[in-house]
Design a protein around this nucleic acid. Structure first.
Length: 543
RNA sequence: GGCCUUGUAGCUCAAUGGAUAGAGCAGCGGCCUUCUAAGCCGCGGAUGUAGGUUCGAUUCCUACCAAGGUCACCA
């Protein structure tokens, strides 16, 4: 409908002012305090262009549009907005569409036939996922689901950094605890992982591997710890509704020779230089400018970035239309290096998106908790999950834009969980369910309801909100502003609760009105359920 | 010091350059003999500072102040 209005306006402007036919203007939903469905700033931008008064232009445009016999009413108002009011039939039609589409309402075919691969979480296997970086899980998952709703086929991937310096430090820490638990004192390794957690893993190792490990069996102990921690993290993610299609092991990139091969290719393309005994990546393009990065250390070992080159080579050359990396904002310095790879592997840079999220900051009362795995001082994602519950946790993490620094007060966590806005959404869904339990109507009957009986302001308001859902989902698949989804659901739930207090759905004296209202609340329930599904939150039948 | 992100109500957060800056929590006052009071209705209260661009700025630009992050032959 927006497009129809926009075209009509475009036409009117073209006729009245051909010299300004190309001006860019917006048609969008009118704000709630305005008695209209859509609004446009066309007269204002036109006024700027022509040096004329916006209000007068708005009136002229309105008159022009009135001659066109379009199926909407136009109003010109101060300071120069054009407002559009649609006949109720438009909203009835949209409502019918929701009932017809059901679980598919909100899906589209914009990206039909295209493939996307999305990497997210990829937590280091040196400790449990903490709440600071837990944001990436639900965030990445919603992005995948939203892309799927737009028609993409999505590959969910995770890279397991199972080799390198941090893994060696984990091994050293494990050895310390292994010996200590068996009664042998030794100095704590430099740069080892503090806190209780490594000790717990060591206890599990003793149970599993026995007490007789010699020092040369250290790789075995390290391997045990890696697997233990990794599986625990995957379980936490699974409990949040996240499952990966592909786990890429950094060690595999190595043993398969992919890392080595990628380095050789870069050398052959003269994109490397040797300096101080190390080999540096030097693409000299607009992304990395004159910065450089080590890929092979002077001791001959490759760096993590070398593996990442091999990994991204695979991402960029595997026939995908869209490649997304979801990282914590602390990796932002890594982004230009990855962008530089797109050109090398012939992948359109604009189809490679690195989405950064700010870490959640944890407070205990007034005090900020510094989160560090190394210092052993962190709040785990699992702790929060168990404390506040899955639905509340997901909703809390997703309610804010990912580039804001959220404060998460752990002392209030449980309290918050009971007052979590997610329950307003769940409650709306459950309330509608109980209406249907009482009404006992079949779904087929709803499709035949005469929607013209929906006349009140509350009913029309709900229909308008419902109709925004598909373009919301489509918009998020481009903006990745997923916090808009929970906000929308809250708005819809509030609209419903308000409606529910004022209007009784089941009316014993008017069966036709009852049927129409049942159709309306069914549509509300459908959209609530569809939206919650995108968030990996299960809609509740009862509270 | 360079770079990235952020500063909105007592607290936690919204607001494609537009109309009266919205919610929740906390506070105060109301509403259950009718489909679930985890709800509804009402009341107070906010754009870090100083400039600039614009018909119009929370939004864009500059400077400053403040918070978090990042500047490895770590990952």
């Amino acid at each position: 409908m927006k497009d129809t209005i926009k075209q009509s306006l475009q036409k009117a402007i073209g006729k009245l002012y051909p010299e300004a036919a190309e001006v860019q203007f917006v048609v969008d939903y009118a704000p709630d305090n305005v008695d209209a469905d859509f609004a446009s700033n066309a007269a204002m931008v036109l006024g700027k262009r022509l040096g004329l008064k916006p209000v007068e232009l708005a009136v002229l445009l309105k008159e022009k549009l009135d001659q066109e016999d379009a199926d909407f009413e136009v109003f010109a108002v101060e300071p120069g907005f054009l407002n559009f009011k649609l006949p109720k039939e438009h909203w009835y039609k949209e409502l019918g569409q929701i009932l017809k589409s059901g679980v598919k309402y909100g899906e589209s075919k914009i990206y039909k036939g295209q493939k996307a691969r999305v990497e997210y979480v990829s937590a280091n296997p040196t400790g449990p996922i903490h709440i600071g970086n837990a944001r990436g899980g639900p965030y990445g998952e919603v992005i995948c689901k939203v892309l799927e709703a737009g028609g993409y086929k999505v590959l969910r991937e995770y890279i397991h950094n199972d080799i390198g310096g941090q893994v060696e430090k984990l091994g050293a820490t494990m050895w310390y605890w292994y010996k200590k638990l068996l009664g042998e004192e030794m100095p704590f390794p430099e740069g080892g992982y503090q806190g209780e957690y490594p000790k717990e893993v060591a206890e599990a190792a003793i149970k599993k591997l026995g007490k007789g490990l010699a020092e040369k069996a250290l790789p075995k102990l390290t391997d045990f710890a890696l697997k233990y921690i990794f599986e625990e993290n995957l379980q936490t993610l699974a409990d949040l509704g996240i499952k990966f299609d592909v786990i890429v092991k950094e060690s595999d990139l190595h043993t398969s020779g992919k890392t080595e091969k990628a380095i050789e290719e870069l050398k052959a393309k003269k994109l490397t230089v040797e300096k101080d005994g190390a080999i540096w990546f030097v693409p000299n393009d607009e992304f990395l400018e004159d910065r450089e990065a080590v890929i092979v250390k002077s001791n001959g070992q490759t760096t993590y970035f070398a593996s990442d080159i091999a990994y991204h080579k695979e991402k960029f050359t595997s026939g995908y239309d869209l490649v997304i990396d979801v990282f914590g904002s602390n990796h932002h310095g890594h982004v230009p290096k990855l962008q530089a790879l797109t050109k090398i592997y012939g992948f359109p840079p604009e189809h490679f998106q690195v989405l950064l999220y700010q870490y959640v900051r944890v407070k205990k009362g007034q005090e900020v908790v510094k989160m560090s795995k190394r210092a052993g001082n962190f709040v785990t994602a699992r702790e929060v999950l168990e404390e506040v519950g899955r639905d509340s946790m997901i909703f809390l993490l997703l309610l804010t834009a990912v580039n804001t620094h959220v404060d998460f007060d752990l002392d209030l966590a449980k309290d918050t969980s009971e007052k979590n806005p997610v329950f307003r959404v769940q409650y709306a869904h459950a309330r509608i369910n109980s209406i249907f339990v009482k009404a006992r109507v079949s779904a087929s009957k709803l499709g035949q309801a005469d929607l013209k009986h929906l006349q009140t302001r509350e009913e029309l308001g709900l229909m308008r909100t419902l109709a925004k859902y598909p373009e919301l989902v489509a918009g998020i698949s481009e903006s990745f502003a997923i916090h808009q989804l929970p906000h929308y659901l809250l708005g819809l739930a509030d609209g419903f609760h308000s409606f529910y207090e004022k209007i009784h759905v089941i009316n014993a004296e008017d069966e036709k009105l009852t049927d129409a209202r049942l159709a309306l609340v069914k549509a509300v329930q459908t959209v609530l359920a569809n939206g919650l599904q995108l968030l990996s939150i299960k809609p509740l039948e009862k509270m």
